[in-house]
Design a protein around this nucleic acid. Sequence first.
DNA 1: GTAACGTTTAACCATTTAGTTAACTATATA
DNA 2: TATATAGTTAACTAAATGGTTAAACGTTAC
Lengths: 91, 91
Amino acid sequence: MGGVFKALSDPTRREILKLLRDGDKTAGEIAEQFEMSKPAISKHLDILRGAELVSWEKQGQYRMYSINLTVLQGALSEFMNVFEKENGHEK
Amino acid sequence: MGGVFKALSDPTRREILKLLRDGDKTAGEIAEQFEMSKPAISKHLDILRGAELVSWEKQGQYRMYSINLTVLQGALSEFMNVFEKENGHEK
DNA sequence: GTAACGTTTAACCATTTAGTTAACTATATA
DNA sequence: TATATAGTTAACTAAATGGTTAAACGTTAC
């Protein structure tokens, strides 16, 4: 879960996740939305994938990326749980 | 809010927050819980304070740190909201 | 006043991070 | 087969990060 927070610490990566929230996109479509180079975006995607926040599947010569919402929500709500009231966080 | 994720990206800082969840602590009491030096912890505390995740108040020669739960919960739930279903995230 | 304590600040260092350009791999197509 | 397209990998760089030790700053206590 540390990987998730590391992945989320970069604004570009958070922005990529927001883009993917609206639907799957190819690496190129994602890169278009940013001013930086494609290799830079490719590395961000690799970090997101390392944290299992996104996955991709080959579609011809494209890579179609999608967000793993359950991983994102799971990691964040697990962390937030620690700070909830009414919870002696006994475990 | 970017500052919050940056602050949360380090495991030591997340651990500090968990400690403070159980009650306010002085800088020294916090530092005791880790193997690293006091200056290192002091810097982590400064980053947490920069993100407004903690605050402190002078108590004699001590600094008593406390967690700002509302900031933590506010930032995380605002971010998570973006990824909730049933929400066209119209804004 | 001075010595001890609690904590931060300063200066420094090694590693990681986030970007670049160039080269490579794989697919599609003329 | 050759060329264009999509994307990653490699090599490199500047800046940020996270740690160290030493010095400084306040407060407490003798």
